[in-house]
């Protein structure tokens, strides 16, 4: 009797397991097929891409496979330049952002000064402003900002930040949400550590750089990931403030590339080129990516 029951239960369990795997697999196919199609098509000539649409071949690297489309991308647009622009802008936004926002988080969580609470609540209040709200007035604003330009060996005063690297970088260094995450994380480290270091004669900057930063690896990783994705994917802002081809980042460059020819094979090669690095990074650091996203939702 008992044996039969456990057999029944095992059968029921197996049925349940299969019932769960079916939707999970269907969903996995749904989420994967456009990207598999993209990578596979980037290796095929245009005529074959269109011919394969009707069959499973659309997802298989069969037929006339080559890297010709990739060569085409580099021939038709200064892709290497676009890539450099995106990497340069992203690295500076993430790097300077980690420094500036973690210092602010340090002062806001571990030091006592008048106005601390007010500044913190003002910074938190700015979180409600979506970038899309300020994008249009900000174009007007940066077009009026003073700047220094290097012209024929002399540093010249000028007005307007449009068409420059700084216009893509500087506005995105400080980030209220990063400051919030740093503040919250730093305040979980016992204050007695600071006191001990103070007694030993350490200055505040030393405490920040030598004690708190080394203790806070995970939050630095979280902030780096959360600021990396929007910086790399930036589209609306560079679309408006950068017209010069030599300054264009990959996403805007792709939209131009796409508009000037709809040679699908080359378009797929372009999209594969800018998707692969992020995808590889995600697969390598997937644990950190997923916990960063979870951190963006779970607070308190």
């Amino acid at each position: 009797m008992a044996g039969k029951k456990s057999l029944d239960m095992r059968a029921a369990k197996r049925r349940r397991t299969i019932l769960l795997y079916i939707p999970m697999t269907l969903l996995a196919i749904t989420f994967m097929f456009p990207l598999i199609f993209m990578f596979v098509s980037s290796l095929k000539p245009d005529a074959q891409i269109l011919a394969d649409v009707d069959s499973i071949n659309a997802f298989l690297p069969v037929g006339d496979i080559s890297f010709a489309n990739y060569g085409g991308v580099f021939e038709r647009v200064p892709f290497a330049r676009f890539l450099f622009n995106s990497v340069f802008v992203t690295v500076l936004i993430v790097g300077l952002g980690l420094l500036v926002n973690s210092m602010a988080g340090f002062a806001l969580s571990r030091m006592e000064w008048s106005g601390r609470k007010l500044v913190l609540s003002l910074i938190i209040a700015t979180l409600i402003v979506p970038f899309e709200t300020i994008a249009v007035p900000m174009v007007y604003w940066v077009s009026k900002l003073p700047t220094l330009v290097w012209e024929n060996g002399i540093l010249k005063y000028d007005i307007g930040w449009l068409n420059s690297y700084e216009v893509m970088i500087v506005p995105f260094i400080a980030n209220a949400f990063s400051i919030f995450l740093f503040t919250q994380n730093f305040s979980t480290i016992p204050p007695s550590i600071d006191e001990a270091a103070r007694i030993d004669g350490a200055g505040w900057f030393t405490i920040y750089a030598r004690i708190i930063v080394p203790l806070s690896g995970p939050v630095f990783a979280t902030v780096a990931i959360l600021t990396f994705l929007p910086a790399w994917n930036a589209y609306l802002w560079p679309l408006m403030v950068v017209q010069q081809e030599s300054l264009r980042p990959v996403m805007v460059g792709m939209q131009y590339f796409f508009q000037l020819n709809t040679a699908w094979g080359e378009v797929m090669a372009y999209t594969s080129l800018i998707t692969l690095p992020v995808l590889i990074m995600f697969l390598v650091f997937q644990r950190a990516f997923v916990s960063s996203i979870a951190a963006s939702g779970v607070k308190g």
Partner: peptide, 29 residues
């Protein structure tokens, strides 16, 4: 006193940038 000026120095870059590229654009909007 030392801590106070250090605190202002550390919080200033982020606050100034947020003011210039978030608060001002909102007011401009």
């Amino acid at each position: 006193r030392h801590g106070k000026s250090a605190a202002y120095a550390m919080v200033a870059p982020a606050t100034i940038l947020l003011f210039l590229f978030l608060v001002v654009p909102v007011l401009l909007a």
